[in-house]
Amino acid sequence: MTVIPSKFVIIVLCFFIAILIFVPFTGDKYWIKLVTRMMVLGMFAMSLDFIVGYTGLVSFGHAAFFGLAAYTLHLISPEETAVNLLWALPVCLLVSGTAAAIIGALSVRTRGIYFIMVTLAFAQMLFYFFHDSDIAGGSDGAFIYFKPVIVLGELTLMDLDGQNVLYFFSLVSLMFAYGFLLIILRSPFGRVIQGIKVNEHRMRALGYNTYIYKLVSFIIAGLIGGYAGFLFACIDGFVPPELLGWQESGLALVMVILGGIGTLFGPALGAVALLGVEELFRERHIFGQLSEHWQIMLGAFVIAVVLMLKNGIGGLILKIGDRLKGSVR
């Protein structure tokens, strides 16, 4: 399994990053917001791919960590001033990471279909907790009135209230997450979890405590997922309980499949594609009356993707890369 992206992949990714850097200069607020959402959800899908595609744990409750970080940001944000990101982000990550450790400790004991169902059930438990109780707005959702700022001493270095600031912060975070996960995958730890996906019995026979390795990779994914949730809460300043819901987890899995399982950069592109398709289906000029029921088309699209796309967008890019390499030789 190659973890280091090939030259072709790097060129393609640089091309995408160049486009991303260009977007804010269009000045179109709607587009900037949409692309911010794409990047943040791309980061979320990437963190899910880390466990689905590399460790082989198909989690159907990944939205739990995403939503939990968003709710934490709401709970620690005072109503009349902005919270300092320098401590708010670590607190949100700590909550997501702790939740991932507890849920993971229980669910990693199970495997296959049990793992899918158990992670789903735990995520739903958190969903109902926030949906039914009134600690954070219940089913109406909660608001974050002032978005986080970075303050050092007296100096405000960054204010996420600015749309372009949040945009670039998300872009840097996405690139950071990609690099971070790549480094982990290239480390001895990363080799072990990839070994577990291929043959867990053999890894155990080699003397690895596979439970711990799986648990730690689950926690890492939860942390990055939480980071994405933190950013997502900053986009609209609104945290509905649906962020923890199973539809969110399901759509993240669709992004992973659409982008290509086990490619890491693919799921980020999958997020771009899925949100793009959703935007298209909602377009009144093209689909008319049907655009009100865009979820039907989204459902059909999901089914088509599952049935037809084996390796997703990422797989396609890798294939083209291989072709080009072959022709050079």
């Binding site: 689905v52 198909v58 399901g250 499949i257 989204l298 459902g299 699209f301 999901v302 089914i303």
Partner: peptide
């Protein structure tokens, strides 16, 4: 594999829910 089963039936849910709305 299970992942694909989960996703296809997830797509079915989206369709059924929207049909119910209609």
């Amino acid at each position: 594999d299970h992942l694909q089963q989960v996703l296809l039936t997830f797509g079915l849910i989206l369709i059924f829910n929207e049909l119910q709305q209609i």
